[in-house]
């Protein structure tokens, strides 16, 4: 359930450059508890950079980040946001050297010092939530298909029952049917946890399935934000071009 009166995550006026390339130029985003916000935008516009800044994986050149009212300006604050968030990386980022169940329960064994037996049970239970059987628990990530790896990564992101989950291109590289199944799982699990979600994607099917709110990133800042049901009549030419996938329009193809 979305609670719009409070803000769980807020990024204010974030600037981030890599050498001469100015990626984020006054990026603002706020996410309420339980709210699912999807950030859309072209390739290379800084969508991943924005969530990496939020998680403290990249340090913004300027701007402020707040999580649950706490300013993210110290290592301890960053550690706290990481304890209360989950992240599904674009490629899954599963640890090759660990078995599936060890990947899923990583935070339980390493941070919560749960016994390996209990952690394995918890991992298998969480794998069931993402429609994976116990038989995959002892496999290595490389033995799984792309869709299964995404589901394992989702299980790893939700096992600690986070308040906020970041999804970086969750359906990239998947066929439409598997992508739809992953979208369903994301929606289902986020709702079951009552967590907020920030998703970045180009996939409009994902957007319509996952989002409460949609934010369009262009030229380093959010140029439009609104509810997902306003996507088709936003009155914004950038949104129209992106949603309809047209090469002609104000957004120049990145080639």
């Amino acid at each position: 359930m979305t609670d719009n009166s409070k803000t769980l995550l807020e990024l204010r006026n974030i600037y981030k450059s890599f050498g001469p390339k100015h990626v984020l130029q006054g990026f603002d985003l706020s996410v309420a508890p339980g709210q699912s916000v999807v950030i859309i935008g072209g390739s290379g516009t800084g969508k991943s950079v924005s969530i990496k800044c939020a998680l403290g994986l990249l340090k913004p050149d300027s701007g402020e980040i707040y999580f649950d009212g706490e300013k993210q300006d110290s290592a301890k604050a960053v550690a706290r946001i990481r304890e209360r968030t989950g992240m599904l990386f674009q490629g899954g980022a599963l640890f090759d050297s660990l078995k599936v169940w060890e990947n899923v329960s990583f935070t339980l064994t390493q941070n919560q010092k749960m016994s390996r037996k209990d952690a394995r049970d918890a991992a298998i239970e969480t794998l069931k939530k993402v429609r994976l059987g116990a038989s995959v628990a002892d496999q290595r990530p490389a033995e799984l298909s792309g869709g299964m790896q995404k589901r394992v990564a989702l299980a790893r992101a939700i096992i600690s029952k986070p308040d906020l989950i970041f999804f970086d291109e969750p359906t990239t590289g998947l066929d439409p049917i598997t992508a739809d199944a992953v979208n369903d799982l994301i929606r289902e699990q986020v709702q079951a946890l009552g967590a907020a979600a920030v998703t970045i994607t180009h996939d409009m099917a994902s957007v319509r399935k996952i989002a409460d709110d949609v934010a369009m990133l262009y030229d380093g800042k959010i140029i439009w934000r609104g509810p997902v049901d306003r996507l088709d009549d936003s009155g914004n030419e950038y949104i129209d071009q992106f949603v309809h996938g047209r090469a002609d329009g104000p957004i120049q193809p990145s080639m």
Binding site: K52, L55, G56, L57, A79, R82, E83, T85, G86, M87, F89, Q90, G91, A93, L94, F95, D96, F106, T107, Q110, N111, R156
Partner: peptide, 10 residues
């Protein structure tokens, strides 16, 4: 991004 994943898992 496995190193980033380690960071996010504290």
């Amino acid at each position: 991004e496995q190193i980033d994943a380690l960071h996010t898992l504290s």
